[in-house]
């Protein structure tokens, strides 16, 4: 049974498409710009059906927190990873809790994706 499971997993591996963002608990550290703190994130995309990801910063009640990044919609082509920096005002440092990436799906009818993936890291270092 276990062998069958692994064989099935090997066949599925070619079709699998994944979205990954690390680290889980990025620290917000002082940046080279006065009054801003920043966190460095890395995203990996192996979803063939997705090329773009939206970055967002939220507080613990999921209200948006103002932030700056290279781009709010990042292009991460299939099979590649991208490191990006998120800047938050120092006065928002305590409020900013989550840094999230959300896959953006195409609206044209040729796109078959119906699963939107979202991964959120915590900046407040709240280890379980």
């Amino acid at each position: 049974m276990i062998k069958l499971f692994f064989i099935a997993a090997l066949f599925l591996a070619g079709k699998v498409s994944a979205h990954e963002m690390t680290p889980t608990y990025p620290p917000l550290v002082p940046s080279y710009v006065d009054g801003l703190v920043s966190a460095k994130m890395t995203m990996f995309n192996s979803r063939k059906d997705v090329d773009y990801f939206e970055i967002g910063v939220f507080d613990d009640e999921w209200n948006p927190v103002p932030f700056a990044a290279t781009a709010k919609i990042l292009r991460v082509p299939h099979g590649s990873s991208k490191t990006f920096e998120v800047f938050v005002r120092h006065k928002d440092k305590k409020r900013a809790t989550f840094i999230c990436s959300l896959s953006k799906l195409r609206t044209d009818s040729s796109a078959r994706a119906i699963v939107s993936s979202k991964i959120c890291s915590r900046t407040d270092g709240a280890l379980p």
Binding site: T24, D49, A113
Partner: peptide, 13 residues
């Protein structure tokens, strides 16, 4: 070993 989460869309419905 670092904590991370990966979301895989194995089958689109």
């Amino acid at each position: 070993v670092q904590s991370k989460c990966i979301i895989n869309t194995d089958i689109n419905g």
